[in-house]
Amino acid sequence: MHLFFSVGEPSGDQHAAHLIRELRRRRPNVRCVGFGGEAMEAAGCEIHFRLTDLAIIGVFVVIPLLWKFWKLAQQARHYIEQQRPDAVILIDYSGFNWFIAKYAKRAGVRVIYYVPPQVWAWSEYRISRIRRWVDDVLCVLPFEPQWYAQRGIKVDYVGHPFFDEVAEHRLDEAFLDDWSSSKYRNVAILPGSRDSEVRHNFPLMVETMRRLNERHPNVRFLVACYKEKHRRFCGTYLMTHANRLPVHLFVGKTPEIIQAGEFCLMVSGSVSLEVLARGKPAAVMYWAPWPTYLIGRIVVNIKYASLPNLFVDREVMPEFIFVGNQKKLLTPLTEVLHGWLSVEDRLNAARHEMSELRERFAQTGATCHAAEIVLQRLTPASATTTAKAA
């Protein structure tokens, strides 16, 4: 079996890597190739281009890279037409992956969209692309099956792979022991996985940490950097703007930092699901330039930025969207975190609410379910019958 993957987000890289391992566990001779990242390569995928290096967000950021994306799309098209994989598996990253879906469909290759784009959130007209170019949709959010069904599209709900990844990860107990203390209180800082997210959000996070430190000198801030380059950026920024703050930078320790923190200050993203899975209270923030924000106000039709809030249609995680040079939201953001540090009942209430959501939504098994569906769809009925008989 020959599968072509196209994955552009760091979180998608993790989801694809787990799916590849599960597919190869069930079918050792499966060949996986395509666009992706380090995790997929470690799982045995032949990476033709490190697409996760181009993980960006925003209309205006994309423009300088349009030629690069077009060349990559043509590279994928030629490969699909000449090598004829059994299926193309797409994970999120819709702006680019729509082209891959179209080329594969025209070539007569089955298209499977695992973790489909959030067409329910903005630009609903894109649903027509799913109808035309996608054969199988494996959705991961609990409200998606009904949304698709109302529009006449049959999908398979598999659950979110993030919960599998959290359950499988063995925490570094030595790290947790080193950073547990009766003298200090830990706050987890999650500045995002994209370069642009870190660049724009971390300075706002530092100002929030500075304000908290003035009122709570016994608090230390553990920062979960996604890449070494992010750690270097954060370290340089701290040296020049806040070198006396009790901030500690780490790479590859996101689960441990979430676990060690009493609560999280996080950039909006899929990491909110890991925060949910660990039952941690969190305040969510995101920076956007004015043009992107104004366009979003027109095309986005959801009330919340973070997935746990969308699950229950209310603000379980307080959200703060910063626009341009606007910093007035730093005060209410700081007050929320100050309240958790100052009033134990507030923090306990937030913990209880997150624990209840975890019990409702943080279910495992998505990766196995997705692998099972992929193999079912790509295995001829006669072969399936023979395998069962054997």
Rank of each mutant, 00 (worst) to 15 (best):
H78S: 15
E173L: 03
L212K: 05
P217A: 10
R21Q: 09
V61G: 14
S128A: 08
R215Q: 05
Q14I: 06
R25I: 07
N213M: 07
A76S: 15
A260M: 04
R377L: 04
L294K: 06
M205F: 05
T384I: 08
V251W: 07
I302K: 12
V158E: 00
V140W: 02
I298W: 07
V111W: 01
A101T: 02
N243T: 11
C139F: 07
L138E: 03
Q363K: 12
E315N: 06
P281Y: 11
V140F: 09
S181E: 15
L249V: 05
V300I: 10
L238N: 03
S268W: 01
T236S: 05
S193A: 07
R24D: 04
R185G: 08
A104R: 13
V61E: 14
P116K: 13
A188C: 08
I112Y: 00
A76N: 15
R77Y: 14
F162C: 10
H78A: 15
L176M: 05
V284Q: 00
P85C: 12
W179G: 00
E197A: 05
Q150W: 09
D136L: 03
D86K: 15
D156F: 04
V271R: 02
E9C: 04
Q75L: 15
F49W: 06
Q82H: 15
F320T: 09
N218A: 12
K183S: 14
E315F: 11
Y148P: 04
R21A: 04
Y93V: 03
P142C: 04
V187Y: 12
F99S: 15
S6Y: 15
E228H: 13
L23F: 01
G37K: 09
Y293K: 06
Y237D: 00
N348C: 10
G159P: 09
H352I: 10
F4P: 14
F143H: 10
L249G: 08
I47C: 11
L72F: 06
L141C: 05
A370V: 07
T254N: 02
A362D: 01
F60T: 15
H48A: 07
R215K: 07
A288P: 00
I153K: 12
Y148K: 14
N213H: 13
R129C: 10
A121F: 07
E274I: 06
V7D: 00
V166E: 01
I56D: 14
R297H: 04
R170D: 08
Q363I: 09
A387M: 12
V323M: 03
S268T: 08
S306L: 08
S123A: 13
P85R: 08
G58F: 14
R244E: 10
E124W: 13
R314Y: 03
S193W: 10
P332D: 12
H216W: 04
